[in-house]
Structure formats: structure tokens, C-alpha cells
Design a protein around this nucleic acid. Structure first.
Lengths: 134, 134
DNA sequence: GTAACTCGGACTCTATTGGTCGTATATCAA
DNA sequence: TTGATATACGACCAATAGAGTCCGAGTTAC
């Protein structure tokens, strides 16, 4: 299967919602959780990652919440995915770098063609900005 | 994560190998299994699906094996994936049709932008033919 | 008839993901 | 100062899917 994780789906929905607020007021995780029917705890964790990556800022305490810190036109969707997953998604194991990249696939013959598709997907996520999904 | 299954990886390697045989001689699952270090049983099952989809033909018995039945230039990679997985891969649950398509996502806001990326990926797999990966 | 193949279902094991829980910490307002 | 309301974060459980195995059955060439 080739599917984004729920975390990414939730994250995209959430950051889109945050970005859509015009005034500088904060949005709480609970608000977003209620509005879209997303499990609170899971969403909170996703928001923390987005915050850690600097895409949004968090404010603790009463009347706290999250706010966008960046220009939606400057934020690539790929950056959002990377912030949540920690890695850039690759469609085949043999395309990922690292020690377990191609263990059995030393005779892998499909690496080069798949690289094209991979580049295609990456470009799609990279050229799409947050502003476009609001 | 966004990753093709091992089945698809194995299937692409296998059908590429079968297609690369010039003469009309058959290739056995064991041969391919040995050559690329792919688990025999798993590979056999993948080949069965490719056979069922009509992309290759199977010949049972002694001196049996598999052979390509189609013109490599006419076979889209997307057709190979579909033959193996039974479905066309979609990057998000809300993009799939069927009963469980968008259960919680009746207020899903990212469907339309993701559709573009989805189309992009599909096009990449559809425009790439078996002939190009040989 | 037997060896060498494909066929196909059932099964286990393991990793990943989705989701939950509990607790700590920060902030504001009464 | 106290309590309500937030985020922060690690540990944990459950469901699912994926990878891989096993085994019996059917087919064909010799």
C-alpha cells in the first residue's frame, strides 16, 4: 500500500485549520479535535511535532493554544510531512538511505526506474504550499 | 509512510526479469527466487497474481514456468501494481472509494488538495511502461 | 509412475500504526 | 495562592497489515 499515515492526515487538517484563522487568536487542540472528530491525544502529539519543527507556536496555560508562525505561501507540504514523520517518505525500501537500504537488493534491478517516480512524488509535495490547501 | 509493498517490489523485479528473456523459453519461480534472493513462496504467489491478471502465462508441470504474454511497451507499471495489490494505491483514506472511504472525515478539508498529488502519482505509474524498466 | 513444476489456501510472526493513559508543567484569573 | 485550563511527553495497549512459511493438490513431460 501507498498511504500517508493518519498522523499526517490529521496534521494537514489541523495546520490548515490553524492557518485559516485570520485574527491572531490561538486555536486549542481540543477545538480542532472536536471540529473534525480527531482523537484528542493523537492530535495533541501531532501538534507538538509541528510546534517543535517551528511551523506553529504553542502557548501553554489558560487561553493558550496554537498559532501559525510562518507564511502559508512559504510552507511546503513536504515540510509538514517531514515535521510529523521525521523522515521523507520513500516509495520503496531500496530508495531509502541508511544501513538497511538495500540488504537483499544488491541485485535490485528496479531501483533506477523507481527513482523517477520517487522524484515525481517529492516534487508534487514540495511544490504544493500550505497556502494552496487552505 | 508512503511505501510500495514488498509484493510489488518483488513483482516488478520478477516481471522485469521475465521480460528480459529474449527467446520464448520459460522462467521458473525458483530461478527468479534464487537469482534475486526473494523468498520462493512469496514470489510464487505474486507470480500467480500476475498470471491471473493476464500479464504473464503459467505453464505447469516439468519444464514449466512463466513467460510474458504482452508487449512490454504496452504494459503500464500501474497495471502491474494493480494486478498484484488488487487495488490502485491511494495516498489517503479519504481518497479511496468504498464504504470506509471517509467515515470520520465528513468534514475532511484536505481531500481536494491531496487529489492533485494523487493524480500526479497515478500519472507517473501510468506513463511508465514495462519496457522502460527493462 | 515419478519428478518437477504451478496453484492456492491457511497459518504464524512481527512491525507499524492508531489510539489511550497518566503525569508533569506552564499560565492566567479570581 | 489556588484552581481551572492549556500544552508536553513518555509509557502503554490494541488492531491491523505486512512478510514470510507450510502444506496439500493439480498438471505435465519424460
Amino acid at each position: 500500500m501507498v498511504r500517508l499515515s493518519k498522523r499526517v492526515e490529521y496534521g494537514l487538517i489541523a495546520i490548515r485549520d490553524i492557518a485559516s484563522r485570520t485574527g491572531g487568536d490561538l486555536v486549542t487542540a481540543k477545538e480542532i479535535s472536536d471540529r473534525y472528530g480527531i482523537p484528542y491525544d493523537l492530535l495533541a502529539k501531532v501538534l507538538q511535532r509541528l510546534s517543535k519543527a517551528g511551523l506553529i507556536t504553542s502557548h501553554q496555560g489558560v487561553r493558550g493554544g496554537y498559532a501559525l508562525t510562518v507564511d502559508p505561501r512559504q510552507v511546503q507540504v513536504s515540510a509538514i510531512i517531514h515535521a510529523i514523520e521525521g523522515t521523507t517518505p520513500v516509495i520503496a525500501q531500496c530508495l531509502s538511505d541508511g544501513p538497511t537500504s538495500c540488504d537483499v537488493f544488491n541485485v535490485c534491478t528496479i531501483k533506477s526506474p523507481l527513482t523517477k517516480v520517487q522524484a515525481n512524488i517529492e516534487r508534487a509535495f514540495r511544490t504544493m504550499t500550505l497556502a494552496e490547501i487552505v
